[in-house]
Design a protein around this nucleic acid. Structure first.
Lengths: 154, 154, 154, 154
DNA sequence: TTTT
DNA sequence: TTTT
């Protein structure tokens, strides 16, 4: 039949310091919210910003990275999937839903203030780096490779 | 500061025929659910499928395309963004949330039964098609371009 | 510092039957081309289609799946990363480049003719499926959850 | 038939100050290279970094943004599509290929040194911001909404 | 609750 | 050519 795809890409800012817990079974869990902001036209036709808050969840090793490096205000790139959990509210007996993004991969782009533009989580920087190409491809194409109006795709 | 990113990519099957409406202001709206299925390990360590239902919403021209071509069972590729709306429940007075995917782009991959593997919505098939290259690039590289163990990135 | 991201998403049709090989080291490799088609405005201001051919490469288990299920004409969803290899042309002594998409994940959306709209590679369909919700969320929200003009994000 | 998809997502660092030109037809064009770095296992089984250089191209308004805000060292998030141009080399008569990423959308994440962690290109910050939800969803779910081992998707 |  |  072919697999399905459920993929989310977010780039935004963390709203609060993450909450770190462990389940009864001992799995590390990190919970936090991430804001993305959209420019939208409101009813009056004016542009304004609309902030969307996403509930993010990470497990195990990723949860540990979040515990160690992610704070309120951190700018984050996240890849994940959408998952909606449901339960019956004890008070009202109603079914309730909560949609969360389960993080598969993340990249810390910056933190607040003291962290400046860096301070990431990459463990044990590698010592050797091998590029297969010695020179930049930018240099090595002739006159004929220049983009002309014919190449413009619109 | 840099913009934020809120992007969703889904590939799955439509749960029911879409509901098509217009708002009071006359904007066409399409609502439907899309299932994606994940292979997960359950508590017993066995693999099983977990189906996730996503609430999709489309507006205007995209809503019309959905009205005309999308049915229960259709396989769809969708690009969109996550949006959570909230309101106060009239009965209980509680705040309720509903997370939806606002569709930006979609591709109909197949319908049910009679539509076989085709029958999409692309309007007015183009008559001319210009490929810049006449043959598949697969052919045109020499012996030295073959992948060797050194090229394997793992 | 934060990791970087190199991600490609393609949905298109396979140009020829894949070539399957093994490296000297015994790693299975699959090579094939995939076409995606863009609608672009040409110099005369007319809309036309521009087909882009991508060089895809897969290794190991993914290469085996491709060997078994992917054919000329197959419609495929692919996730991967961009990689450019280079070598010195034996004839001219020039540096040559070849950009390829290394497949990380794929979904077979249909095959040619006889396969109709299905016949994928998912092994051993699962017998149990647990949805946390029994019905489509589309049903279960009240009047107040309906989208109004105020909810439209443009 | 359904449309195809050709989408690239990159997050990396700019290798040199962009080159800004205009075509004969007056279209603004920006060219630059972006590095992404992958952690790969080499032949000896050791982890090392492999840097991939991508050729990026932007047109019109996006080219102007790049001219004004993107520099050598800038960290960038980019969305685009893959395009391979070809031409006949005047010297050797051989067919040559150059694969480029045509930028559709970008987000400046930071520059070097003096730019600190900000200084983006978003024009005319909006004055009003309307969130539909007054309080964080993080707070407002009961005990039963907590993630347990049953909720963990692996 | 974030960020500019 | 970048970045840590």
């Amino acid at each position: 039949m072919g697999k399905s795809v459920n993929k989310v890409i977010l780039l935004g800012n963390v709203g609060k310091d993450p909450e770190i817990r462990a389940t009864a079974g001992g799995t590390m869990v990190a919970n936090f919210s991430l804001a993305t902001t959209d420019r939208v036209k409101d009813q009056g036709g004016n542009w304004s910003d609309r902030t969307e808050w996403h509930n993010l969840v990470a497990f195990q090793r990723t949860a540990e990275i979040i515990r160690d490096y992610v704070k309120k205000g951190s700018k984050l790139y996240v890849e994940g999937k959408i998952q909606t959990r449901s339960w019956d509210d004890k008070q009202t007996g109603e079914k309730k839903y909560r949609t969360e993004i389960i993080i598969n991969d993340l990249s810390l782009l910056s933190g607040r203030g003291e962290e400046g533009g860096g301070g990431g989580y990459t463990r044990a920087a590698s010592t050797s780096s091998f590029d297969q190409r010695s020179s930049a491809p930018t240099e090595d194409y002739g006159q004929s490779a220049e983009i002309t109006d014919d190449d413009i795709p619109f």
